[in-house]
Design a protein around this nucleic acid. Structure first.
Length: 217
DNA sequence: ATATCGATTATCT
DNA sequence: GATAATCGATATG
């Protein structure tokens, strides 16, 4: 029996358009809260999860951003057109997903840090290689940038540079009409530069928000 | 409950 | 040669 949340969203999902991403990453980050990340495998069932935590990275003037020291082969997507997936590999183990913002030639991006699973829980657990006995275990699927990427099967080879605004792509972002209520801004997590800036956006109190208990929820 | 640490590799200096 | 937008295991209170 497939475990899933009570709400069905697929039929209502409408992709976000390019203009949504062609803005300052702070604005995009705030408005991404409550939207839905969708994985549609060639064969197999759809995975969906609500975005509950993101971070804005501002481009060449942001010392913590991958774009800080200019365009390279790795970060090229951040300098390209908005609405595309920037996937990087970190600590020899994990992939992390971003979406490009701003416009061609101007870098900017939003890092996906945590999701609330909606459909495809069993497939996510399989992808993560863990068992989820009860909903209390669900945060282990998608709370954290490395975890959510593994749950969605996101890799640099497969997804870097892909357009996230097309419903026909295998990875895209949709709006199901959900309106985020309590938003909160906090310092970003896991970085060593510009840690004073409030560029992490969360749905306050959402149990799927990542990070140690000592960090703002 | 919180802290520390090792894993493992693409990327850049 | 060093570092990193992390995770999970282990140790300690």
């Amino acid at each position: 029996m497939e475990k899933q949340r009570p709400w069905k969203t697929e039929s209502l999902l409408r992709p976000l358009d390019r203009a949504f991403f062609a803005r300052d990453p702070r604005r995009v980050a705030r408005e991404l809260l409550g939207k839905v990340l969708v994985r549609q495998p060639k064969a197999g069932s759809q995975l969906t999860a609500r975005i509950v935590e993101v971070e804005a990275y501002l481009g060449e003037k942001d010392p913590a951003a991958h774009a800080a020291s200019g365009r390279t082969l790795r970060n090229a997507v951040l300098f390209g057109p908005p609405g595309h997936a920037y996937v990087y590999f970190i600590y020899g183990n994990h992939y992390c997903l971003n979406v490009s913002c701003e416009r061609e030639g101007k870098a900017g991006g939003v890092l996906f840090r945590a999701l609330e699973p909606l459909t495809g829980i069993d497939a996510m657990a399989r992808a993560r290689g863990i068992a989820v006995a009860s909903p209390r275990d669900w945060p282990k699927l998608t709370s954290g940038p490395g975890r959510l990427s593994e749950a969605f099967g996101i890799t640099r080879a497969r997804d870097n540079g892909c357009d996230l605004t097309s419903r026909d792509g295998s990875l895209w972002i949709g709006d199901d009409g959900y309106r985020a209520r309590r938003l909160r801004l906090t310092p970003r997590i896991g970085i060593t530069k510009a840690i004073h800036r409030n560029l992490r956006y969360i749905l306050a109190g959402n149990p799927f928000v990542s990070g140690p208990k000592t960090v703002a929820r």
